[in-house]
Design a protein around this nucleic acid. Sequence first.
DNA 1: GATGAATGAGGGTTCATTCAT
DNA 2: AATGAATGAACCCTCATTCAT
Lengths: 196, 196, 196, 196
Amino acid sequence: MRTKNKHTKEKIIENALRIFAQEGFFKTTVDDIAQAAGIAKGTLYLYFKDKASLYVSVIEEHFKVGIKYLNEVQKEKMTNTAKLQKIADNWIDYMIRLKSSFFMFSMENVNLSSKIMKAVKPIMNVYLKKMIDIIARIIGQGIKTREFRKIEPRIAAVHFLNTIRTGFFVTFITPERFVDKKILLDLFFKGLKQRR
Amino acid sequence: MRTKNKHTKEKIIENALRIFAQEGFFKTTVDDIAQAAGIAKGTLYLYFKDKASLYVSVIEEHFKVGIKYLNEVQKEKMTNTAKLQKIADNWIDYMIRLKSSFFMFSMENVNLSSKIMKAVKPIMNVYLKKMIDIIARIIGQGIKTREFRKIEPRIAAVHFLNTIRTGFFVTFITPERFVDKKILLDLFFKGLKQRR
Amino acid sequence: MRTKNKHTKEKIIENALRIFAQEGFFKTTVDDIAQAAGIAKGTLYLYFKDKASLYVSVIEEHFKVGIKYLNEVQKEKMTNTAKLQKIADNWIDYMIRLKSSFFMFSMENVNLSSKIMKAVKPIMNVYLKKMIDIIARIIGQGIKTREFRKIEPRIAAVHFLNTIRTGFFVTFITPERFVDKKILLDLFFKGLKQRR
Amino acid sequence: MRTKNKHTKEKIIENALRIFAQEGFFKTTVDDIAQAAGIAKGTLYLYFKDKASLYVSVIEEHFKVGIKYLNEVQKEKMTNTAKLQKIADNWIDYMIRLKSSFFMFSMENVNLSSKIMKAVKPIMNVYLKKMIDIIARIIGQGIKTREFRKIEPRIAAVHFLNTIRTGFFVTFITPERFVDKKILLDLFFKGLKQRR
DNA sequence: GATGAATGAGGGTTCATTCAT
DNA sequence: AATGAATGAACCCTCATTCAT
């Protein structure tokens, strides 16, 4: 198959996402990705300058998909509470399928070589902020409709993302246990305190 | 130099914690740690079988300190709300000092070679559960005293840890911004929802 | 684009000469040459078996041009001294334009893989000897006309080529300095010794 | 032999000189050098930052030895003519032994990656100028003693180096022929022209 | 003839681990 | 107990060469 396969780049990103997510940046070898994508090692370098660039591309791709999804949900006709519930549900399921809370909720993955760090951090920040913005907008709407109480929406948004992550996290470390996503969301929405 | 080498092991763990936390498992070299600890590379292997063992030891040590701290707070004379506030405050500050939410809140770091993964995961789980237990006990007490509403204490405990992580996370991605820990704790305690 | 592809081979050699001369055999990539020649990489292999063959072809072409030039000068009507002066002048200028004393004066470039070495050395030797012969003939003529003293003409010819090279060399390593070609030629012609 | 062998660095440089000289920078692999030096590939990197640094070190070492030799000859009690003769004799023999006119007389070797070029060129220039200075001093002395005619000594020095190179060059391209060094030096001293 | 995507062997470099001192 | 020079497997990346279109 010597003709430029239009899907080669997609195939690489697809497989790279999965492997990076499960193995991390360093444990993943370029060979691993190439083999998974069914191409030769050198071919990968026709599409990406180096391993770090591929990593950045994977992150970008991943974030774009996430943001697109968030935007779609945001536009739907439902209460803002329902929107957050839907997002949390789908996302936790997605992460469980991927076997990783890769990216979105883990800056730790970026505890990489400073070389990569420098490339990845600003990109991640931009996308992260976009995601937080969309969620903050949903929360802002909810404040207007009196679904939610008055609170800084961006902080609440970050807290929401972390709550989602927790949902995955609990499942991941204790696979035997069924994560009651509802209880977590309930906590997020109602808080721990006794109502007086 | 030969006098108090009984502390060699501690020196290694201390420095390894800092470096692993900031650089991650792979980026950290055995050389880095040995140099930081002021010993020769070979010496490190007198105390630890290999790099992975050191990593595991560091995690164990780290968790032990954390658990000891939690136990101390738990015994103090104050409301359970105050206890959680104190824990969150100190922990967020600690993570900011360490420049990492390493370990406790990031299984992602363990997205490492499966070799390490296999060694670390069960150990982490044991300690994590201990930590969750202590916090769950505080929350359980709070439920008895009617500070908190009736909710599965262990889930609430996980959510609490996650809230702490959020505090660090916000600082980390937006270093310019002062993290208002009060708002976060407020969210944790009261939830997002409007009280009716 | 399809019209005058009869010149493709020439275009390749032309550009290869320039790039090989400035970058050397290894630093030059087949891609560099193909791009400079405005053709696809694969096309190059329609005209040359491999990179080494191209290199050999370039050398041959280069030598042929040089020998043709020498032959022309040799036939001109002027003193043999003037002929050598003209050759030296033009050659140094040519090398400065090419930014390289490539080939002619540098067997070192041929300190390459033995694979290439084996192919290039005999070819170079043949051409080198032809060049030396022509110059030796000029010198021989000069001996007959008593312009030059009796000396083995071929050794003098090699010395002449190296003198030319020195002219370029000095310019190349000390670009700030104007090379006084006359002084060098004067040294070549009259020697260092005091005349008694 | 795990103890730091004081001679390891010397062994590396020694072998690297020989191989670089015969094969050139690119054809020479780090493995080649390591094997020739009887060490592991990684060991080489304990002593040199990278291949380019090793190359630079080899050049420096080589030049230092050459300059030391020149200084010794310069101090000897003999005519300046004899000094130049001695230098030329020994040098040509040395190059023939090394099978290369590497370095001293070949900037071409530096037609390398610009990365190396940038590192090597200024270093070479410094040493080259030192060598030229020493020879120019000998020639300057010779002018004072009326051995040599009045001529810019530095230009004459460059021409002298070039003459030496010619000596090697002739041997290299026509191995069958015994290089008559006397004829070459005679050309250098007396020039090509007929004395009138 | 021409193309350029794909290949994969080969080389530079890193670094966990060993072991003679 | 401590050292640190030496090792070599492993990994990233390059680039000459091929071949389906």
